[in-house]
């Protein structure tokens, strides 16, 4: 049941974008229309869901103290290995999607490589280490954070589509208003803080 709690918590309460502001670069750059936001959001869920368990295995079976040689800790290699896993997984996902479903590849195409430098992917893996999740929990955390990111980018894209007809002061147009809107959304999401996922899964 712990995994379900972590999934709900990652998606709604500790939302990657609205509580930690991770993945903001692509969040702001790709949120002009709902259609492209939808594609990028799906790709992020996918990559987070895959890299999190792989990085968990690397961290536990290769890097942890005494994992390979007794008394030796390879933790100083963590950042380098994590980013290498993320970069190669994104590359792999790109190739698999291209083979398996060319139509999906065409709609996602340009956004896939961008995911490598999406901070929420790397941030997810680092949070997983610092919170000491188990394997199942890290899968749930990956999928949950992906879903949270997906919801946030869809929401801001929908708002920005409506904003195009609004009368925003010239100096605030574009990114300025997008920042302030994200802040307001963050405050709205904070109302979920009191929520205890354990209550639903008793």
């Amino acid at each position: 049941m712990d995994s379900i709690n972590i999934f709900i918590k990652a998606a709604f309460i500790d939302n990657m974008v609205l509580a930690y502001f991770l993945g903001m670069c692509s969040y702001l750059a790709v949120s002009k229309t709902v259609k492209t936001a939808f594609g990028l959001g799906l790709a992020v869920i996918f990559v987070l869901g895959i890299t999190m368990p792989i990085n968990w295995m690397i961290n536990t079976y290769l890097l942890a103290e005494g994992a390979i040689v007794e008394g030796v800790s390879l933790e100083f290699l963590r950042l380098i290995l994590f980013i290498a896993v993320i970069a190669s997984m994104v590359q792999l996902v790109e190739m698999v999607i291209e083979k398996a479903s060319p139509s999906l590849y065409n709609s996602l195409g340009i956004f896939l490589p961008l995911i490598t430098v999406n901070c929420s992917i790397m941030g997810g893996s680092l949070f997983m280490v610092s919170r000491e999740y188990s394997f199942g929990e890290s899968v749930a955390f990956g999928l949950g954070s992906g879903l949270g990111w997906f919801l946030a980018i869809i929401a801001i894209a929908a708002i920005r589509e409506k904003l195009r007809t609004a009368d925003v002061p010239p100096a605030l147009r574009g990114l300025g208003i997008a920042f302030i809107l994200t802040g307001l959304m963050g405050i709205a999401f904070m109302s979920l803080t009191g929520l205890n996922p354990a209550d639903f899964t008793k």
């Binding site: 010239p170 605030l172 574009g174 300025g176 920042f179 802040g183």
Partner: peptide, 27 residues
């Protein structure tokens, strides 16, 4: 609150672009 950082940077963008017309987003 974490959200305040977004308000602050939004306002800073507003001030900076308000002072310098070259930076205003035309699109």
């Amino acid at each position: 609150l974490p959200a305040a950082s977004l308000f602050v940077i939004g306002l800073m963008i507003w001030v900076q672009r308000g002072l310098d017309d070259r930076l205003v987003d035309i699109s």
